[in-house]
Design a binder for these strands. Structure first.
Lengths: 213, 213
DNA sequence: GTCTATAGGCCGATAGAC
DNA sequence: GTCTATCGGCCTATAGAC
């Protein structure tokens, strides 16, 4: 028999109580990282008790991995979306991916932060493989799009395919990462309008920095 | 009277004991972040006692701020270096900065990680202003170099100066950040050779993605 | 300056009532 | 499923001998 609830497949098999704990844990882990968050912090935010958290999750690490899985699921959804704009030109497809990529970071900032924390901490492997999986899934898809552009003689072939893909993800992710700092810099006027930033960078990367000859 | 020791100005006024504590604290804070490192961890690594750490630093946060100051100092040194290649062409200067910037990240990976941790945690302000200061000092210098290139009719003027500078720092920092992941990706062959990556990206950004017309 | 000993509190995790 | 009460341990920080 199917379960009665209609939760997304990402949160499957979790009871209402467990979901509210998960919901309280996500922003805390996203902001402070695993080591700086206590079960008590989460219990207070979820309006429940420490013991109840250990009833729903076998350990602090178990809860953290559940949080990471949910975050990775959210960020993986952008891949499904971009598959649906599949009958356009390579340029349209690449630009759509680039735009959706940044939009997905903005739509799920906590998920993006969780993955950043995981990539930053070289150590305990907790959920690093999950983070790497999501990262490489996006990256591989982007490499395909660039390769398509190259084979159709639109993008230059004398440059490494994966290098171009890398520059695209790098600018988006670093924009997301550094937005709070960028807003304080007087030289920068694109920090408050991600969409304008996004299209300007895309144009810049395509045409290059140098003056037209 | 001058002090007798010849420590760099970054570590000034710190005794030998304090310096060895600082040296033990840096890699721990860099890898795990503030919240996940205990004074005892640091004491064990420094072959001393907890109490002695509190003798040299007034609190855990005081020690952390000393660590951050040292890290920011190391990364600021690249600015001094690039000032010394000042009588060249705008292109040479920009490329020198770009290369030195990545090299300084590689030379002081722990400093770079500390700053990343600080930028990632929106909260307690501990040393965030220090991190932002270093970031914006680099960025402002880079904006100047790009503007110079624009005014000499080498770089395009129809694109935001700070946006070009942003793309340059973004690619370098994100390369540093994601190197451990990049090494696992079969499509990527530039992860192991930062210098080759560096010059290839510089060329790519100057010329753009699109095929020469 | 460096140590041992210890205070007082919070940690993750468990037991057991309801 | 949710709670209170509690465990042993580790936490930051201090006191005081040397």
């Amino acid at each position: 028999m199917m379960r009665v609830d209609q939760n997304s497949k990402l949160d499957n098999a979790l009871s209402k109580g467990a979901l509210s704990i998960l919901g309280a844990a996500v922003p805390l882990f996203a902001e402070k990282g695993f080591g700086a968050v206590s079960i008590n912090d989460i219990a207070l935010r979820a309006n429940t008790s420490k013991a109840n958290i250990f009833h729903h999750f076998k350990s602090k690490e178990g809860l953290y991995i559940a949080v990471m899985k949910s975050a990775c699921g959210h960020l993986a959804e952008v891949l499904d979306k971009v598959e649906h704009v599949d009958n356009d030109s390579p340029r349209k497809k690449l630009e759509a991916f680039f735009t959706l990529h940044l939009q997905s970071l903005q739509a799920h900032p906590q998920s993006a932060r969780l993955i950043q924390h995981e990539l930053l901490e070289n150590e305990s492997q907790r959920g690093k493989h999950l983070a790497e999986e999501v990262f490489s899934k996006h990256f591989t898809r982007l490499v395909e799009l660039v390769r398509e552009g190259q084979s159709q003689d639109w993008l230059r072939k004398d440059c490494d395919t994966s290098l171009m893909a890398f520059v695209l993800v790098a600018t988006n992710i670093f924009f997301f990462e550094s937005r709070s700092v960028l807003q304080h810099l007087p030289e920068v006027n694109f920090a408050e309008s991600p969409d304008r930033y996004n299209s300007a960078v895309f144009k810049l990367l395509l045409n290059g920095f140098q003056k037209e000859s």
